[in-house]
Simulated assay, not measured.
Amino acid sequence: MTWDAPYLVVVVALFVIVMLRANGTYWLGRGMAAGAERTRLARMITTRHYANATRWLNRWGAPAISLSFLTIGIQTVINLAAGVARMPLRRYLPAVTVGCVAWAFLYATVGFIGWAAVVKLWQYSPAALVAVLVVAVGGIVWAMARRDATPKVAAE
């Protein structure tokens, strides 16, 4: 996957895309907090992932927003939680901007390189790509099952 544009243009385009997505999620959270709890969207704020994101957000605040862009799968719930928690824009906007800049640079380099590797492996051997994906998904499922099976010790 390549873009016929200079690297900086690709980074800026990716920044705009992720900034729109992150802020849209934040405002969705604000809307949910303002009365959307009676809709189907309310289920999103009762999940374990949302509860974990809210705890992380309450503990780490604005840096949690920025750091969430270096993870896979948590940035959406962190931005949603920031909206539901009605994090002030004076704290949210600088944090989300830092995170979006980091994400854009990472995705413009490592993301495209990773995608090129997937395409190359598919061209070499579709079966090898399927095997790699099966092992990766199996590892993730195993790690999540192991984490969920670990007994939690109550704080005394």
Rank of each mutant, 00 (worst) to 15 (best):
L67G: 12
A149M: 02
L80V: 06
A53W: 00
R91A: 15
L41R: 08
Y50G: 04
P94V: 03
V137N: 06
R90Q: 14
L80A: 13
A131L: 11
D4T: 10
S125Q: 13
T71M: 14
G83I: 05
G138V: 10
F69E: 07
Y26E: 11
N52A: 08
R91W: 06
T97W: 05
I45F: 00
N23W: 00
L67T: 13
G99V: 06
G35K: 04
E156C: 08
E37M: 11
T71H: 13
N58I: 11
A117E: 12
I17A: 12
A5H: 07
A22I: 03
A108M: 10
T2H: 15
V141W: 06
W115F: 13
V135M: 07
R91N: 15
I140Y: 09
T97V: 11
A36V: 00
L41D: 07
A128I: 06
A33M: 04
T76N: 09
G24F: 01
V118S: 07
V135G: 07
F69T: 07
V12Y: 05
E37Q: 13
L20Y: 00
F69L: 06
R59C: 01
T2L: 11
A145G: 09
N58A: 15
M44A: 15
I72P: 14
W122K: 04
R59K: 10
A149H: 02
A128T: 15
M87C: 05
V130W: 09
L80K: 05
A95G: 12
F105M: 10
S66P: 01
A131E: 10
T71F: 05
A127L: 13
T76I: 05
R21S: 11
A62G: 08
A155E: 14
S68P: 02
R59D: 04
M32S: 03
T71I: 02
V135I: 14
Y7E: 10
L57P: 00
A116H: 14
M1T: 08
T150Q: 12
N79W: 01
M144V: 11
A155K: 09
I45C: 03
W27E: 07
A108Q: 08
R38K: 13
W56R: 07
R48P: 07
M144S: 07
A154N: 13
V110D: 00
I72L: 15
A145D: 00
R48I: 05
W27M: 11
R147T: 04
I17Q: 05
S125L: 12
F105S: 10
L41N: 11
I140E: 03
D148N: 09
A85Y: 01
V84W: 03
V101S: 08
W115E: 12
F69H: 09
L20V: 04
R86W: 00
L67F: 14
F69Q: 09
V18H: 02
T47Q: 15
W60P: 13
A82N: 06
P126G: 08
L70K: 11
I72K: 14
G73L: 12
W142I: 11
E156P: 04
R30G: 01
H49P: 07
A149K: 06
A22D: 08
G73N: 11
T109S: 15
T39C: 00
R43D: 04
A104S: 14
A34R: 15
R21W: 00
V153K: 10
R40P: 04
K120G: 07
T25L: 09
L28S: 01
V10M: 03
G83Q: 02
A62V: 12
L20G: 12
V11D: 12
A116V: 13
V153E: 15
A64F: 03
P63N: 08
A143C: 08
